[in-house]
């Protein structure tokens, strides 16, 4: 294809997106659109898969059968969300194996929030309330994104996600209405998860390299700072209901703007964790790679079994 032809196709493509038309897998798309989507969708899928690990840590130690069943269901949903997103991503012409390879080699990223440890049961509450809360704010606009398979996967994910947040908040509520020690445990979890949750919504707008292009492709509909403000505005009153304190002395309702003002985020910490120096980066990757490698013989055996069955069927028929 000549440069002019490509330019022409690109114009038609951009016009389609501007008209809110969806792009489907076999449609022509600019290479950059394809790559950007592979990057974002796979990062999202990897986050769901790695995101199972911090919570998996507490399944066997959940304080009641009710809590255990709910936590198991939540972790299972995360596996499901990872699978929806991987298969949506594969429609762009990349294989599942390549996607895993990118995760395991460290080439692809996942949300850095999952590199923090879950040291008490209250962390299950804080993760559901804050981490899933921030995730929902990030994900709801994606239900309208321009790439059809991604938008459809996100509709499904968002439908299931609200149970996650509610079960987390209920854990916090129970602890906050319990003994002094239980309430202190909830406060401690809030103290540790608050700032990383704010960072989850991404670098500030002036530092965010992908925002402009992603807005144009509707891969993003609100900027990181807008999403963060929305998260803080909706979460601060929920902390009041719990009767615990958000660890930010500058957090204050601003009558004039109609929003909460908040303190400075420690972006050095964010970049440290992104670059692999968070408290659990190594542990998470090791758990993931071990699971993949130790499961190899099972995958091979299943394939061998399927092939043997197929041969048997053919022999029987002839």
């Amino acid at each position: 294809m000549s440069e002019r032809e490509i330019k022409n196709l690109e114009e038609i493509f951009e016009a389609r997106i501007a008209r809110d038309e969806k792009i489907e897998p076999k449609d022509w798309m600019p290479e950059k659109y394809r790559q950007t989507h592979i990057r974002q969708m796979s990062q999202h899928a990897h986050s769901e898969i790695i995101g199972m690990l911090p919570e998996g840590n507490w399944i066997t130690r959940a304080p009641s059968l009710r809590r255990k069943a709910a936590l198991l269901a939540k972790v299972q949903d995360e596996a499901g969300h990872g699978l929806y997103l991987y298969s949506a991503c594969e429609t762009l012409g990349i294989s599942r194996d390549e996607l895993y390879e990118q995760l395991h080699s460290g080439k692809a990223k996942y949300s850095s929030i999952f590199n923090y440890p879950t040291i008490t049961w209250a962390d299950m509450g804080a993760i559901g309330w804050l981490v899933d809360g921030a995730a929902i704010i990030n994900q709801v606009p994606l239900c309208n994104t321009s790439y059809g398979p991604y938008a459809r996967a996100m509709v499904r994910v968002c439908k299931e996600e609200s149970f996650h947040q509610r079960q987390g908040y209920e854990i916090m509520l129970t602890l906050c209405r319990g003994t002094e020690e239980q309430k202190a445990m909830a406060q401690d979890a809030l103290n540790r998860w608050w700032w990383p949750s704010l960072m989850m919504l991404g670098p500030t707008d002036d530092q965010s390299v992908h925002t402009e292009q992603s807005m144009k492709w509707k891969l993003k509909r609100k900027s990181n700072d807008e999403l963060r403000q929305q998260f803080i505005d909706q979460t601060a009153p929920q902390a009041d209901v719990l009767g615990i304190t958000i660890p930010d002395p500058d957090l204050k309702w601003n009558e004039e703007t109609g929003h909460y003002d908040f303190g400075e985020i420690d972006w050095d910490e964010f970049w440290q964790v992104v670059k692999g120096h968070g408290p659990c980066n190594k542990e998470r990757m090791k758990a993931r790679v071990d699971a993949w490698e130790n499961g190899e013989w099972v995958r091979d055996a299943a394939m061998a079994h399927a092939e043997k069955n197929e041969k048997r069927k053919i022999a029987k028929a002839s």
Partner: peptide, 11 residues
């Protein structure tokens, strides 16, 4: 509804 990987139809 979507797609997935499996060794055979049963799986």
């Amino acid at each position: 509804f979507g797609s997935l990987h499996a060794a055979d139809a049963e799986m």
